[in-house]
């Protein structure tokens, strides 16, 4: 059983994308170590509601580390210092010390405007996917599983790329607000498989064009995205996207 801790919580309040925003502070007392970070914020909100104040707004959904909805920048790291391969909901209070100051901020990027407090608008990612992150479906008879042979290594790598949950931690961590790790993972998951090849060139061009149009920055290979990605996506995906894109443009 983990022991209880007390700490100072600084959390970002902002009424909308145009509002200036500020930090609110609160002393959190006797929080059990096995409380998850989001449960701790629930405790905060319960206190705020009981005092007649407006609750603190943050994104969350499955709380199982698979949906990619949570999005907090905790003490300078997207999703906080979790075990790698986990999102904010899998961060536990035992990772902090008694007497700590914990600062919670939203993803800060021009591509992700703040809706309220720490909830940001990540529909930009949906728009990038809509631009070409799919295989055009021609439904026919289901095929035999072995009809298209795919090397195990390719299948594994495509699966690793597909595990990107689109949480936006890469953009949040990047000093350039670049979405290249997300876009490259989504291009790679299809580029690696034979089913994705026929549309590979069109996809790479369309998704990069949409990413640029939405105001994300240019990748300068600092690797900050890779270091914070909860799904451990690699920048080798970015090299693959560069390859796909350059090839597509040279063939135009």
């Amino acid at each position: 059983m983990d022991k209880n801790i007390s700490f100072k919580l600084r959390y970002w309040r902002q009424n909308g994308p145009k509002d200036k925003g500020h930090f609110d502070e609160r002393e959190m007392k006797d929080i059990p170590g096995d409380t998850s970070f989001l449960e701790m914020l629930d405790i905060l909100n319960e206190q705020l509601v009981n005092e007649g104040k407006e609750p603190f707004v943050f994104d969350h959904d499955c709380r199982e580390g698979i949906c990619g909805m949570c999005s907090l920048y905790i003490n300078g790291t997207p999703h906080g210092k979790t075990e790698r391969g986990a999102t904010t909901c899998q961060l536990y209070m035992r990772k902090f010390k008694d007497g700590d100051t914990i600062t919670v901020e939203p993803w800060r990027s021009a591509g992700f405007p703040v809706i309220k407090d720490c909830m940001v608008d990540r529909t930009a990612f949906d728009k990038i996917i809509q631009a070409g992150g799919y295989v055009t479906v021609r439904t026919g008879q289901p095929q035999d599983a072995n009809a298209i042979l795919i090397p195990k290594q390719d299948a594994d790598e495509a699966m690793d790329c597909a595990s990107c949950i689109g949480c936006g931690a890469c953009v949040a961590a990047c000093k350039n607000g670049s979405a290249m790790l997300f876009v490259s993972s989504k291009v790679s998951q299809l580029a690696l498989l034979p089913q994705g090849r026929p549309e590979a060139a069109r996809r790479a061009k369309a998704m990069v064009a949409k990413m640029d149009e939405l105001g994300f920055g240019n990748c300068t290979n600092t690797r900050a995205c890779e270091a914070v990605c909860p799904k451990c996506e690699s920048i080798s995906n970015i090299a693959r996207l560069n390859r796909e894109f350059i090839k597509a443009k040279l063939n135009d």
Binding site: N75, R108, S109, A110
Partner: peptide, 14 residues
């Protein structure tokens, strides 16, 4: 510009 107008109060470089 892509970084947005607000900067992080706390940053921790990986």
């Amino acid at each position: 510009r892509a970084r947005g107008k607000d900067r992080y109060a706390v940053t921790d470089k990986p």
